[in-house]
């Protein structure tokens, strides 16, 4: 249990770093604070997908196909709308198609035993290319104004709709991971798949569901991005998966599975997203921004590694203050 406790603490750490970042950025660039909420619209789909990616990674998997699923479901929505369907119905279908794409990922992985990395890399190619072909290499646009409010609207004049959706989903996913049997099974599988299987957990079903959720959020992100950009393109989701995974890892989700929190992943995305917005304000070039992101990723994961090793050593030496008590190593039943 020590390991997951450390990762729970990590999420407090990441919130603290996030708040520190807010203070620094607001003091350096005066207009930053007054534009804080509207700026989140630029990266909320990343956050939404990071929630389900957290479950996928905790269960020992990875989903590289989400960027392509974003494009694919977005294009499907656009095409259905072009053929006369109501945009909201088309959007709902697009979300479900995302879920179907996730289901296919899950089934490939649990039925054939293909590594998630390879299976979802393959479906990334498939959905991504289909999206480009279906959209005829152009964009579909002209959606009705009421639909555009999903991605660009403000609730009560100050709360971005996208942010509201993200917060509600984050609460749902946190509940799902921490308070439901499904969530505990996800963690269990990530810690030891064989032990979970012997304990009667339907491993295949739980794993498939993590991919279905991942597909659903990718589909939803496709719809939201279609609304935000007032158009859909076959390449609109390209590369998003890596940004999502980066957010999760910075947020303390263990890439080997078994540990991670929704709060951590959510603030991991907020931390990186706000940093990028702030650096734009400070006229830092995109290349330098990418370098900074790389450094943060390495630092975050390195600190997590060291923290885990330290926690383990402390446990071995028997408690508080590792060095002090080394001599009187007590036997402890845990």
């Amino acid at each position: 249990m020590k390991r997951s406790k450390f990762f729970a603490n990590w999420s407090y750490g990441i919130i603290a770093v996030f708040l520190l970042e807010m203070v620094i950025l607001s003091s350096v660039t005066p207009k930053f604070l007054s534009n804080l909420l509207p700026m989140t619209e630029n990266f909320m789909p990343i956050g939404i997908m990071a929630l389900s990616m957290t479950l996928v990674i905790i269960a020992g998997g990875i989903d590289l196909s989400i960027g392509s699923v974003v494009s694919f479901s977005g294009v499907i929505m656009g095409l259905l709308w072009q053929h006369g369907m109501n945009i909201w119905v088309a959007g709902l279908l697009a979300v479900l198609i995302g879920g179907l794409a996730g289901f296919i990922n899950g089934q490939i992985i649990v039925r054939t035993g293909i590594q998630p990395l390879i299976a979802t890399l393959a479906t990334q190619f498939i959905w991504g290319s289909l999206a480009v072909v279906l959209s005829n290499q152009g964009s579909i646009y002209g959606f009705p104004g009421s639909f555009l409010l999903l991605g660009t609207g403000f609730l009560y004049g100050y709360l971005p709709v996208q942010l509201v959706i993200f917060v509600v989903l984050a609460l749902l996913f946190a509940y799902l991971l921490n308070k439901t049997v499904f969530g505990r099974q996800v963690l269990f599988i990530g810690n030891s798949e064989s032990v979970s299987a012997y304990s009667g957990v339907n491993v295949n079903r739980v794993k498939t569901w993590t991919y279905v959720l991942s597909g659903l959020t990718a589909g939803l992100s496709g719809v939201i991005m279609g609304s935000f950009f007032a158009s859909v393109r076959g390449d609109m989701g390209q590369g998003l998966e890596l940004t999502v995974i980066t957010g999760c890892l910075v947020g303390g989700v263990n890439v080997f599975g078994g540990a991670g929190t929704i709060v951590g992943a959510a603030f991991g995305v907020l931390l990186l997203g706000m940093l990028s917005q702030g650096l734009n304000f400070m006229n830092v070039s995109s290349q330098v921004q990418a370098i900074i992101t790389g450094v943060i990723l390495i630092l975050a994961v390195a600190i997590q590694q060291l923290g885990t090793i330290f926690a383990r050593r402390r446990k071995m030496t028997g408690g508080e203050g590792a060095g002090k008590l080394r001599g009187e190593r007590r036997a402890r039943v845990e």
């Binding site: 555009l148 609730l155 004049g157 709709v161 439901t180 499904f182 569901w209």
Partner: peptide
Amino acid sequence: IGWKRMATALVILLLIVALAGCGAVQSSPS
């Protein structure tokens, strides 16, 4: 597994968004 509960929650979320879309949503921050 908790998926039934979650499906219900998703539907509720969609309703919230749809309802919000009817009234309080504006196209730009005030």
